Simulated scan of single mutants.
Amino acid sequence: MVEGFIELAGVEKVFDVHRRKGFLRRERCRVRAVDDISFSVPRGEMVGYIGPNGAGKSTTIKMLTGILTPSAGRLRVAGIDPSRDRTKLAHRIGVVFGQRTSLWWDLPLRDSYKLVRRMYRIPDVRYRANMERCVDLLDLGALLDVPVRQLSLGQRMRGDIAAALLHDPEVLYLDEPTIGLDVVSKAKVREFLREVNARQGTTVLLTTHDLTDIEQLCKRVMVIDHGRLVYDGGLSGLHAVGESERTLVVDLERELPPIEDVPGARTVKVEGPRQWLAFATGASAAPIVAAVAERYPLVDLSVREPDIEDVIAKMYAEGRTAPR
């Protein structure tokens, strides 16, 4: 394994779970959440870590932060064993869990940041500079005096990301950072992450179900399923392995027979005047859109990206998982 800033070698995590068996009896089962995972992430790289629900993504992040201890294997972040020296590591990492906040619910956003400053003992000059940068890039100026409980999900998420970066962490773990956000909020979060990675060289490990996050932010993607790493490489390679397809949704002026004369696309569904055309993920949508617009009475159209769970499901169903 290549030496990296984040290193996992043969890492496993097994949980003991008690399940009811009959009316009064319970039996203990062993659930393998992470199964012999090995990978290395160089300093400054932004990597997508994706997979279906229950695949082991969050468990991996929790081991990387020291919240959970591996059952087997070797794990290091910046040369530190997270489970053995969690306090030391905490000053070098930032964590954002999309489904829960690290902010204080009843305090204004500004006061939450002041508490973060005291917790990490951030020097005044660095704190003011980081606050100014985060507030500007994440558009938080009007929200600083608003209690966290009154913030929308998108506003709170931007606030959480700022809190995770106030102490200049070397590594940023993002677990579903754009979940439930609107298009504008997602764009702001993505632009901010690009800025942080480019200007400060922050290493970013991003878990998400939104494939657009990965496409816009990451050159490298790792896929985990049933606790095992099944792919590690470029996004184009993942689509090639899974033979994924994008979908062009076409709204016509009236109901017509399925569209069949557009090169590179095939109609997969028809409902009244709406038709769905599938085409290869690596292909450009422009010539397909132009052909449809030229030959058919078009009202509206949109392009839908493939769902990562569908890509992985197809990989498994047809036995095309990439070598580890």
Results as ranks from 00 to 15, higher is better:
V47F: 09
G73A: 01
T203P: 13
A162W: 03
A283N: 01
L229F: 01
Q150G: 06
L103W: 02
R121A: 09
L153I: 04
V223N: 09
K62Q: 07
D251E: 05
D168T: 09
G242F: 04
G56F: 02
D124C: 09
A162Y: 01
P42R: 14
Q150C: 05
R156M: 02
V183G: 08
T267P: 10
A33Q: 02
L24C: 06
A280I: 12
E243W: 04
P257R: 14
R158E: 01
D307L: 08
G79T: 08
S40I: 15
V135W: 14
V77D: 06
P273K: 09
A240H: 12
W276Y: 13
E7L: 03
R110Y: 05
D139L: 00
T208H: 08
E176S: 03
V95H: 03
W104N: 04
T65A: 10
N197E: 08
V204P: 15
R110M: 02
R320G: 14
R194E: 10
A322K: 13
H226W: 12
L235W: 11
T69E: 11
L89C: 01
I259Y: 05
R228G: 15
E305W: 09
E3P: 07
V303H: 06
T60E: 00
R128M: 10
A285I: 00
P263V: 14
S38P: 05
T59W: 09
E318A: 11
Y296W: 03
T208D: 07
H239I: 00
G44C: 05
E294C: 05
L235E: 09
M1I: 09
H239Y: 02
M46F: 14
M131L: 13
V189Q: 00
D36I: 07
E3R: 07
E27S: 05
S102T: 08
G48K: 05
